[in-house]
Design a protein around this nucleic acid. Sequence first.
DNA 1: GCGACAG
DNA 2: ATCTTGTCGC
Length: 229
Amino acid sequence: MITPTDAIALQEQLRSQVITTDMLPHPIRTIAGTDVEYDKDTNLIAGAVVVLDYETLSVLAVASHCMEVSFPYIPGLFSFREMPPLLEAYRQLSITPDLIICDGQGLAHQRRFGLACHFGVTLNVPVIGCGKTRLCGEYHDLGESRGSIAPLIAEDDQALIGNALRTQNSINPVFVSVGHKVSLGTATDIVLKMATQYRLPETTRLADHYARLALLDYKSAPNTPPASI
DNA sequence: GCGACAG
DNA sequence: ATCTTGTCGC
């Protein structure tokens, strides 16, 4: 497998390919969410991709893949751990979504190349990064109401690398950043739109649900393909 | 050296 | 990520 040193070199090389302007279909008709679930007492991980109707949020397609982890967890090299199951799940999808929301950072990363960038550049599709917690960057004066935004500024070069976004009143914000082929403003608007009822966008919540199911299914019957739509 | 550190 | 129910506070 790739070494951490080589992984960093790859990030440095691929980061120049990230597109930070909107290159999405208008109107958006379908949106996908991705998430990865880890098993507590084995090396298994399950990645899931769920495609929703952009307006109704109804589930149009689901795919998942279970496998053994092939890379350690190292902050900043997260994508090398989660990409393999996600790429395989994405490959199995019966529908190609207009864009994807990943559960992790995009440009809001020490080398400006988080999971959302890696996934987007690899597949050449629009991707939004939406993390539950901060990896790097600082923000101030975030309002308490749903829709409040505070710029996430990199500590090193003061670059704008994302937005802290409050998706529900007085609930901890999520961290939105560009993954690929989408602007920060558009990414922020879309994440807020998808977070209809809870802190996290429905895309992420559903992907988490299906990834959990995939892991349980795999453990109970390793040779049986997971249910998919 | 110490703390921080996506999942 | 995972361990994990009820409970404190707005």
